[in-house]
Computed example of a mutant assay.
Amino acid sequence: MSITGAGDGPRARGIVATGVHRSFGSVHAVAGVDLTARAGAVTALIGPNGSGKTTLLLMLAGLLVPDAGHLTVDGYDPVTEGYATRALVGWMPDAFGTWDSLTAREVLTTVGAAYRMSRADAASRASELLDTVHLTELADSPARVLSRGQKQRLGLARALVHDPSVLLLDEPAGGLDPRSRVDLRLLLRRLGAEGRTVLVSSHVLTELDEMADDAVFLSRGRTVAAETVQAASAARRTWRVRALSASALAAWLTSVRVPWDAEDSVAPPADAPGALLIALDGEASAAALLKDAVTAGIPVTSLAPAGGALEQTYLSLEEERR
């Protein structure tokens, strides 16, 4: 996919970061990030606190300048083409900001005016987005009366006012209730399907499994892994198996251990008494194990991943074992 710049031909869609560094005094917040976020996909940015996620997002939004390396957002350089970049980026920080004196509707129309939308277009867009994020009933209430979750929803609407082709979202699910989390997931999937580039930072890894197409893992300011969610789901990971008789299950698993893999680990999980954990290579291996267990007369009652695909990838990274 490509877009056309003014007089400069087609530009590549999506986000690319190559060898990006950014320090604050002696603190190396970003110390060598390489990242690609595809247009038409939702990319998860994953890492512990202090790994450089927010600093990277700020640089992509054109709000910080990298010390070294190169960034492009839909083919534009946020450093040398800041105005053009900001015109196509929707930025949602992890906190709403300082606009508490404005009503929810005024917040959105003010942002629309900043993007040079007509008064009528800004008002129409504000009404549309307030409905999208389920804040219509609070449209004319001052932002200061909104809850943390409601402010998050308003922050998402604010990022969407100018219909951006790229979305940068920093912890968008923070403070959201379960229903709003589902709505957010569905909205981001729809925005990605529309061809937008969506880069989302979050600590809620189980939700990212259902929301994201790709994932990039950061640690100590560096990129340490990148993979698709589909590949993470198919990779070797831990599954939880439960049967009416845990002892019969354990005996059977031990008897068939070699055909599966000599390195498979079978162990009782501390958080699920009566169940066992076994390492398997994706859903096909899990389905085969379940079939053989039923054929052998083992009364299996459940078989499911012990955690999300991205969560297990994240926990397996040696970088995070401090």
Rank of each mutant, 00 (worst) to 15 (best):
M1H: 14
S2D: 06
T4P: 00
P10K: 07
A12L: 12
R13G: 12
G19H: 10
V20Q: 03
S26F: 08
H28W: 06
H28K: 15
V30T: 06
V33I: 15
A37G: 04
A37V: 11
A44P: 06
I46F: 00
G50N: 09
G52V: 00
K53C: 11
L56N: 00
G62H: 05
P66D: 03
G69W: 02
V73H: 00
V73Y: 01
G75K: 00
D77I: 09
T80P: 00
Y83C: 03
A84C: 07
M92V: 07
D94S: 15
D94Q: 15
F96A: 04
A104L: 09
V107S: 04
A113C: 10
R116A: 15
A120Q: 11
A123K: 05
S124L: 11
S124M: 10
L129Q: 05
D131G: 14
V133F: 01
H134E: 15
L135N: 02
E137M: 06
D140P: 03
L146G: 05
K151M: 11
A157L: 13
V161C: 09
V161T: 07
H162A: 02
D163W: 07
V166P: 00
L167F: 03
P172Q: 01
A173D: 13
G174Q: 12
P178F: 12
R179W: 11
R185L: 11
L188Q: 05
L191M: 11
G192W: 03
A193D: 09
E194D: 10
E194T: 09
L218T: 01
R220D: 14
T223N: 04
V224P: 00
A225D: 10
A232G: 04
S233A: 14
R236F: 09
R237Q: 15
R240F: 08
V241Y: 03
L244T: 15
S245N: 13
A250M: 05
A251K: 08
L253N: 07
T254W: 13
R257C: 05
E263S: 14
A267Q: 12
P268N: 06
A272Y: 07
G274F: 10
A275Y: 03
I278L: 09
A284V: 14
A287E: 13
L290Q: 08
K291A: 14
T295Q: 13
A296R: 07
V300H: 02
V300L: 11
T301A: 06
P305K: 05
G307W: 02
G308V: 01
L310F: 08
Y314H: 08
L315I: 11
E319H: 08
R322Q: 07
